[in-house]
């Protein structure tokens, strides 16, 4: 056994310190928001990091607000539907891109990436007019469509990376074993690409859940307004008051589902699921 030498100790300290700095940097704003949400309205400007007295008034105010529960419902519904559709479509697209030979394959991938880089704000104006014309304004579909469009490219890229990792021999083996191309996909490839599907699902869902731009521009009532947009329309308890506390409480409320979802799906994102398929 070799004892950790001096160099190793320094290296160890370096990694511990840098991890701590990173975590602190990432978590600080979250803690700040949580702390704000727990302060009494009067204490909001007390310049303390931790609340003097913990109060749930802000949470009560948020849920008493008529628009917040429906916004939560809209967010969840729109986010989940957009995620489901985007992941299913992206899975098929990625499989086709990786496995099939067809002309224009690279153009397709590059085009998809270009869409992902396209600034959403540039199309908001035309989209607003178009949605009003088509009757999609202030509907779920009106938000699901742009969310899918903007997240599909990333999902396709992620999933094609996963499909590329799956040995082609597995498709072939399934076909020889008597599977139709769809059965080979359904029973062999899709389960193996599951970690990729969960990864993309998380990305798509977070995008849809957090989006403010489309939600604020393409909705006008509780019919489809999602939480980020709804928060912007919060009023204080009195009109002379900044709704800082309510915003903080609402932010905490909407962050919780995301955290739960990531923790749940994280179990499925098992690296090396394909280990053992072929001689490794």
């Amino acid at each position: 056994m070799k004892k950790p030498g001096n160099g190793n100790t320094i290296e160890y300290l370096f990694w511990v310190a840098s991890s701590l700095v990173t975590v602190f940097y990432a978590v600080l704003p979250v803690i700040w928001i949580v702390s704000l949400s727990l302060k009494r309205p009067a204490d909001l400007n007390d310049r303390r990091f931790f609340p003097v007295e913990v109060s749930f008034d802000n949470y009560r105010a948020v849920f008493a607000d008529i628009q917040f529960p429906s916004a939560l419902w809209n967010s969840a519904g729109i986010g989940l539907i957009a995620t489901l559709l985007a992941v299913v479509l992206a899975t098929f697209a990625a499989y086709a891109i990786v496995r099939l030979r067809f002309p224009g394959k690279n153009t397709l991938l590059a085009g998809a990436l270009a869409i992902a880089m396209f600034p959403g704000v540039a199309i908001i104006g035309p989209l607003f007019e178009l949605w009003r014309l088509l009757g999609l304004f202030d509907t779920w579909a009106g938000l699901i469509l742009p969310y899918m469009t903007f997240t599909l490219p990333l999902a396709i890229w992620t999933l094609s990376a996963f499909f590329r990792e799956i040995p082609w021999d597995l498709d072939k083996a399934a076909r020889v074993d008597g599977a139709t191309p769809f059965q080979a996909f359904r029973y062999v490839l899709a389960p193996l690409a599951a970690p990729g599907m969960f990864t993309s699902a998380i990305l798509v869902f977070i995008f849809a859940w957090n989006d403010f731009l489309f939600a604020a521009s393409l909705t006008s009532t509780n019919a489809a307004r999602t939480v980020p947009a709804a928060i912007a329309f919060f009023t204080g308890i009195s009109q002379y008051e900044q709704p800082t506390g309510s915003i903080a409480a609402a932010s905490v409320v909407v962050t919780v589902p995301i955290v739960i979802m990531v923790l749940l799906f994280q179990r499925h994102i098992v690296a090396g699921l394909t280990a053992g398929a072929v001689k490794g």
Binding site: P167, D169, L170, K172, A173, A174, V176, V188, L192, L273, T274, A275, G276, A277, V278, K279
Partner: peptide, 10 residues
């Protein structure tokens, strides 16, 4: 068919 890589479903 038996594949060189075995192609077992992992």
């Amino acid at each position: 068919m038996v594949f060189q890589s075995y192609a077992i479903y992992p």
